[in-house]
Design a protein around this nucleic acid. Structure first.
Length: 387
RNA sequence: GGUGGGGUGACCGAGUGGCUAAUGGUAGCAGACUGUAAAUCUGCCGGGCUUACGCCCUACGUAGGUUCGAAUCCUACCCCCACCA
């Protein structure tokens, strides 16, 4: 049966479970690599599979612009299009309301985007975002939301939160219509589920009202927390997660959108989050920053010149098991694409493995202790000494 | 041998009297990146001193000169390039 979540163990607020989706299962907690344009930048489907990732993201806005959802649909959907046969989730374009603020105007009916590709105006509404995602055909579609910056004043945060709730109703209606075969591109009704997103900026009462509104429009097979890691201080994010955790239904997965760095994953898991996604793994990988158990390292740095050490001796990824730090640095110096790919693979594997480790620790009851020690070591940010 | 052009910081290359320790690039060094407008962006980049404002030294082929002041003007020399003998 699709869209089920089995909770297997808890450790305080932390949870271990298994999410079942049409294209496979996802043991949680889990990190989802981001493949905005239908590609986890620089990595093949086989590369991503090799990192152990069980589910990846795509993006409504970007895939609508290129190649267009009808082309993806005609080619058999995102899975066939990309060659990735495990579960997928598509973001609705709500994040672009935030990240492309300069290129859009928002109204109650939806958002007008001035395409960053060719300047044409593109309209995204809750209905359109839902239709596009239906055509793309990921296992999970996200509701179209209004993301506001982390420092947003209360008035704006409230407006975004209320609007996101109203839009959620429209997304749900449209999604049900499509699932009943009343859209232009009928598919198996149980092939996609829709997840809502909690907004409300940094304001406790708004967040709680958002959650209340989401639950009132349920039931849901999963619930996302959005609008975090968008400029607010880290303690604020932790506080909001702690606020929401006891109010969230236990029986569905919680997805913290856009988060995060390694420490953010552990902090999130400790506060009851099951799913994460973040571009940092691949972006930092391309930019030459690699995560390590002891912090992070600048792969381009002169300190790695000539080093025969593996990037991360504790890691089992392709980069760490086949080449040296000195060689990785060389790849960045000569600007070969292999360097971008290998460090991206490492960073993705690092987060995927962190999820796997956390899961194992939750299951065997040692999560809290392990997490504290892990964070302590990671925060030291020390770069291991050269031989 | 003659004529013309040219020698600028690790490299390329602007700059024809003061606003020049010297525009831009490159290389080098450091940093940032959180539901991807990002293989991107930012900072440093002659040496020394100073918490800082700032100060001192060295520097535009070499050596002299003109000038209050020279990478910039004059003289000689060295070297490179092109063409002509």
């Amino acid at each position: 049966m699709s869209f089920t979540f089995a909770l297997e163990a808890t450790a305080g607020a932390a949870r271990a479970g298994t999410l079942t989706l049409p294209h496979g299962t996802v043991p949680t907690p889990a990190f989802m690599p981001v493949g905005t344009h239908g590609v986890v930048r620089g990595l093949s489907a086989a590369d991503v599979r090799g990192t152990g990732a069980r589910i990846i993201l795509g993006n409504t806005y970007h895939l609508h612009l290129r190649p267009g959802e009808s082309i993806v649909g005609d080619m058999g959907g995102l899975h066939r299009f990309t060659g990735w046969d495990r579960p997928m989730l598509t973001d609705s374009g709500g994040f672009q309301v935030f990240s492309l603020e300069q290129l859009r105007t928002i109204s109650e009916s939806g958002v007008e985007f001035r395409s960053h590709v060719d300047g044409t105006w593109r309209r995204l509404t809750p209905e359109r975002a839902t239709e596009i995602q239906w055509d793309l055909g990921a296992d999970i579609a996200m509701a179209f939301d209004h993301v506001v910056p982390g420092g947003a004043p209360r008035e704006l945060a409230e407006e975004g939160m209320e609007r996101t709730l109203r839009w959620l109703g429209r997304c749900r209606e449209e999604h049900e219509r499509l699932a009943e075969g009343r859209g232009p591109r009928p598919r198996a009704p149980a092939s996609q589920t829709l997840w809502p997103i909690i907004q409300g900026g940094t304001y406790d009462d708004l967040r709680l009202r958002s959650l209340e509104g989401v639950l009132a429009r349920g039931p849901w097979t999963g619930i996302a927390i959005g609008g975090l890691s968008v400029g607010e201080p880290k303690p604020v994010m932790h506080r909001l997660l702690e606020l929401l955790e006891p109010e969230l239904p236990r029986e569905v997965p919680r997805y913290l959108m856009g988060v995060g760095f390694p420490a953010d994953l552990l902090e999130g898991i400790a506060r009851g989050v099951d799913l994460f996604d973040c571009v940092a793994a691949t972006r930092n990988g391309r930019h030459g920053t690699a995560w390590l158990p002891t912090g992070r390292i600048n792969v381009r740095g002169a300190a790695l010149k000539g080093s025969t050490e593996p990037l991360d001796p504790e890691c089992d990824c392709e980069a760490c098991t086949t080449v040296s730090r000195g060689y990785l640095r060389h790849l960045f110096v000569v600007e070969d694409m292999l360097g971008l790919r290998l460090v991206s693979i490492h960073n993705v594997r690092f987060l995927v493995r962190l999820g796997e480790q956390a899961r194992a620790r939750i299951l065997d009851g040692t999560f809290d202790h392990w997490r504290r020690e892990w964070l302590e070591r990671h925060r030291s940010r020390a770069v291991p000494a050269e031989p």
